[in-house]
């Protein structure tokens, strides 16, 4: 899973897709995940990191991860 190369993300949670002209806001966790994806970390890697860092059950994270991926795909932010 790869974020499109030219997607601009900011630390304050803005995402801009220069190919479509769409802008988005992200909450803190989505912002963090996007930053990690941009660093080419693997999904498995990122999930392990999040499980260590946040108070969340693996099942819940798995479900929310899939939902985020669906959102990213919906908004044409993935390669």
């Amino acid at each position: 899973m790869k974020l499109k190369k030219n997607i601009a993300t900011s630390e304050t949670g803005f995402i801009f897709n220069p190919a479509t002209g769409d802008s988005f806001t992200a909450n803190a966790l989505a912002t963090e995940i996007l930053q990690l994806l941009k660093q080419d970390r693997s999904p498995a890697d990122i999930k392990t990191l999040l499980l260590n860092r946040y108070d969340v059950e693996p099942n819940q994270l798995e479900k929310d991860w899939d939902d985020l991926v669906a959102q990213l795909r919906d908004h044409q932010l993935l390669d």
Binding site: F14, F16, S23, T25
Partner: peptide, 10 residues
Amino acid sequence: DNHEFHQISA
């Protein structure tokens, strides 16, 4: 610039 748009929307 789109940062103004971001600013007001968010």
